[in-house]
């Protein structure tokens, strides 16, 4: 199964990845990162490895493995 690695500290919380994920595998985290913003959290249940999240991420926080 595919999965992504998300750099929690680099994430700026724009949530664009959440809006494009076809499987709904990304969610806003409840905790804060060092920047003081709520980053995105990967649920890791049903990732297809489409890399849409990584393509739309403006900060290159996401690595995709398949």
């Amino acid at each position: 199964m595919a999965y992504i690695k998300l750099d929690r500290e680099k994430c700026k919380g724009c949530m664009l990845c959440i809006s494009v994920c076809p499987k709904g595998q990304l969610k806003e985290d409840k905790g804060l990162n060092k920047k003081g913003i709520r980053p995105v959290r990967f649920l890791d249940k049903d990732c297809s490895g489409c890399a849409f999240c990584a393509i739309i991420c403006p900060d290159c926080c996401i690595e995709v493995y398949k």
């Binding site: 700026k12 990584a54 900060d59 493995y65």
Partner: peptide
């Protein structure tokens, strides 16, 4: 598992100053 997407060589792994 193979990495199919990641930061490329020409892009430094630093935080940018751009807004979200």
């Amino acid at each position: 598992m193979k990495k199919i997407f990641g930061r490329t060589r020409s892009l430094r792994g630093v935080d940018t100053h751009y807004c979200q």
